[in-house]
Design a binder for these strands. Structure first.
Lengths: 196, 196
DNA sequence: TGGTAACCGGAACACCCCGTCCGGAACTGG
DNA sequence: CCAGTTCCGGACGGGGTGTTCCGGTTACCA
C-alpha cells in the first residue's frame, strides 16, 4: 500500500468519527469525503460499501468496550462496576451517536471484531450475574436491559443530552435491588417551555 | 367544498393514520396517496406541505389526549391516574408510532390545536402536582420526564414493543416515591440471542 | 339537462442519496 | 530521473424523496 493511500485511509476514518460523533449516522459519504479533503471514490476504494465503512469507523470504540468490560470484571464490587460500564458506554455514545448501531451491526461477524463483541458480552453477562448474586442488582434484571438502556439513551441524546443523562439515572435506580433512590440530574425538557 | 373533495380528504387522513400507525413517520406521500386510492396531487390540494399534513393526521389523537387528561383529573388517586395516562399514551403510541413527533410539532400553534395541547399539558402538570402532594410521586419529578418517557418508549417501539413496555415499567417504578418495586414485563432482547 | 367551475391523476421537476467509471495526477522502484 | 503502476477526484447512472403542472373528468346548480 502506498504511503499516501494509508494516510488517506486514516484521514477518512478520522473524518467519519468526527462527523458521526457530531451528527449521528445520518451523514452522507460525500460529507465524510469532503471533511477528509478527499473524493468520494477514495472511500469506496478502501471500503466495499457504506455499511462496512461505518463498521470500520467503530473498531476503536468496540475495542474500548471490550477492554472496559475486562477491567470491570476485576472490580470487587460488581454493581459499582456495572454502573461504571453503563456510564462509560453512555458517555462514549454521547460523543459518538452511532454507537448502538455499530454495536448491533450484523457485519461485525465477518471480521474478527465479532469475536471481540462476543467477549465483551460474555464479560457483561458475568458482571450482571455477580451483581445479582451480591444482591445489589434486582434478580429479574436481564442483560438485554442494558441494550434497552443504551438505545433509549441514544434516542434522547439526539434531542437533549441532559435528558439522556436523566433517563439513565432513572433506569439505574430501577435496576437496583436496594431501595435508596439515586439522585437524578436536573430535569431536561424535550418540549421547550411547554411543561412547567 | 364539493362532496367528493371532502370525502377524499377524510379518506386521505384515514390512510395516513393507518400507515403512520403501522410504519411510523417514514411513509412517503406517494404511499399515503396510493393507500387512499388517490393521486398525490390531491394530498397537496388539501394540505400545504408534508409537515402540515402529518400534523393534521394527529388532530384526533391530540383531542383524545386532552380528553384523557380531563378524566384523569377527576380520579381521586392522582398517582394511579397518572400511571393510567402514561399507559394510555404509550399504548396509543404503539399503535401510532409518530405520536411524539406530532405532539411536539411546532406548527400546532398555528391551528387552534395548539390550545388543545396547552390545556392537556396544564392538566398533566396539575396531575403531577397532586401526585407529588399525595406522596406517591417523587418530589424531584418533573413533568418533562413524561416527554422523556414517551420519546424513549417510542424509539424502542420501533424495534421491539415488548422492550418498550419493559422500559416504561422500569421508569414508572423510578418515578414512584414508594419503594415497592413494580413487576416488570418479561425481558425483551434488542440484540437477538447475543445476550444470555 | 347542460355548462361551468371545482377537482382529480399521473407525469414532470428539482433535489438528494449511494455506488461506479475513467482520464489525469502522484508516488516509487530501478 | 523516469516509466509504470497505483491512486485520486469529479462526473455519471439508478433510485428515491417532496412538490408542482396540466389536460381530462366529475359534481353541482340553474
Amino acid at each position: 500500500m502506498r504511503t499516501d493511500a494509508s494516510q488517506n485511509r486514516a484521514r477518512i476514518l478520522d473524518a467519519a468519527r468526527e462527523l458521526y460523533a457530531a451528527k449521528g449516522l445520518d451523514v452522507t459519504m460525500r460529507a465524510v469525503a469532503r471533511r477528509a479533503g478527499l473524493g468520494v471514490a477514495t472511500l469506496y476504494r478502501h471500503f466495499p460499501d457504506r455499511e462496512a465503512f461505518v463498521v470500520a469507523a467503530f473498531e476503536h470504540e468496540l475495542a474500548d468496550c471490550g477492554r472496559l468490560s475486562e477491567e470491570a470484571l476485576a472490580d470487587p464490587d460488581p454493581w459499582r462496576a456495572l454502573r461504571g460500564v453503563v456510564g462509560h458506554v453512555v458517555r462514549a455514545q454521547a460523543g459518538h451517536r452511532a454507537f448502538p448501531w455499530g454495536f448491533r451491526a450484523e457485519s461485525l461477524d465477518e471480521v474478527e471484531m465479532g469475536e471481540a463483541r462476543a467477549r465483551a458480552m460474555d464479560n457483561i453477562n458475568e458482571l450482571v450475574r455477580r451483581a445479582q448474586e451480591s444482591g445489589d442488582l434486582r434478580a429479574d434484571f436481564s442483560p438485554s436491559d442494558l441494550a434497552l438502556l443504551v438505545q433509549a439513551s441514544d434516542s434522547l441524546t439526539a434531542t437533549s443530552p441532559a435528558a439522556a443523562r436523566r433517563l439513565v439515572a432513572y433506569l439505574l435506580q430501577s435496576f437496583s435491588a436496594r431501595t435508596a433512590p439515586l439522585p437524578a440530574p436536573a430535569p431536561a425538557s424535550l418540549l421547550g417551555a411547554d411543561f412547567a
